[in-house]
């Protein structure tokens, strides 16, 4: 039996579900497959939680071989991975994380530009990651879409785009600042993920949950440095490909389950507070009103990339078609307006 040493790392700690699942699913499954054949064994050198690099260098670190395997956080790499941002510029397309990851997995096989965007960085993609669905959490109840006009909502980075045309102002911040921002009136609420709101206890200051189901977003991939990959014996490569697919599928399912469970837990934990947590679904009419009030951000995004010679229009169409083919129902046909 031959032992192979590999470093596996991440910018985020293992308490983040998809980072923890690198251990419990990707690594464990790889070990399991290899153990069956008994030919190879992997000695994992784990450096999770930013021991080797921070969130600002997840792509570079795999590309440069600082780690062999790592989670690449594509949402923070809009310059290097522009096509991978597509789902962030097409909100209200699907709120099903498992479905979206299936589409991305398929696109990676069928869309050469998308695959090339990743593989130009000297790496091999093994599995994919995404977010759960975005909703609106506010300190005061809102009765519908019209109420957003004039509100200040914490929506950092690309999420600011999702508020354009709604009349709401986007306030910058981060998961750690939302709580005090809302408490002190810097913002009236937040556009965020149930998986982020629950551990940060934001429901304590923003107990009115409007379930908008704005949709999930593609967030990145588990990747291995190409040089490290090329040195692996074939049976190990095969085991990792299989483990990566298993990881992606399990992660998608896990996201959907956790999202529902997180909302339930909020209601439970926030039942005794001054204003108990209550979840109100936004009406279909209001969801449509919201997405139609927005400027065509998908087109803006695609135009910018097409100018630089990237086939972003075709990719956006393929993404939304992929969602439809699996039974998803995009609220706005972003692809018809490109």
């Amino acid at each position: 039996q031959e032992t192979i040493s590999l470093t596996v790392a991440s910018s985020h700690p293992t308490v983040i579900p998809w980072v923890g699942m690198i251990q419990t699913h990707f690594m464990a499954r790889t070990d399991e497959i290899l153990a069956e054949a008994g030919e190879y064994e992997i000695n994992w050198n784990e450096a999770f939680g930013g021991q080797l690099y921070k969130a600002n260098a997840t792509l570079d670190s795999v590309e440069q071989g600082i780690t062999d395997i790592g989670w690449v956080f594509s949402m923070l790499e809009p310059a290097k991975l522009p096509m991978s941002q597509a789902s962030s510029y097409a909100p209200f397309t699907t709120a099903d994380a498992a479905l979206q990851l299936e589409v991305m997995e398929e696109l990676f096989e069928t869309n050469e530009a998308f695959r090339e965007e990743w593989e130009q960085y000297n790496l091999k993609v093994l599995g994919f990651t995404g977010t759960d669905s975005y909703d609106v959490y506010t300190s005061e109840p809102i009765s519908g879409f019209a109420d957003l006009d004039g509100m200040k909502l914490s929506a950092p980075g690309v999420l600011g785009n999702w508020l354009r045309g709604t009349g709401a102002n986007a306030v910058d911040g981060s998961l750690t600042s939302f709580y005090t921002d809302i408490q002190t009136g810097v913002s009236d609420g937040v556009l965020s993920l149930a998986l982020g709101v629950l551990p940060a206890k934001i429901y304590e200051v923003a107990p009115h949950v409007t379930k908008v189901d704005m949709g999930v977003a593609f967030s990145g991939a588990i990747a291995i440095n190409r040089d490290s990959w090329d040195m692996l014996p074939e049976p190990v490569q095969e085991a990792m490909v299989e483990a990566g697919a298993y990881y992606t599928e399990a992660h998608g399912r896990d996201l959907n389950e956790r999202h529902a469970a997180a909302l339930e837990k909020m209601v439970e934990a926030g039942a005794d507070q001054g204003a108990p947590v209550e979840i109100t679904p936004m009406s279909e009419a209001d969801r449509e009103a919201w997405v139609n009030a927005m400027p065509n951000i998908a087109k803006e995004w695609a135009d910018g990339l097409e100018e630089r010679g990237m086939p972003a229009r075709a990719f956006m169409k393929a993404y939304i078609d992929g969602v439809r083919a699996r039974g998803g129902e995009p609220v706005r046909a972003w692809d018809d307006e490109l």
Binding site: P78, A79, K80, Q85, Y89, G157, V158, G160, N161, R164, A170, I297, E300, W301, G304
Partner: peptide, 11 residues
């Protein structure tokens, strides 16, 4: 070469 930037396209 990669036109690296900070901020958010569109904003």
């Amino acid at each position: 070469e990669r036109r690296e930037f900070i901020g958010t396209p569109g904003l």
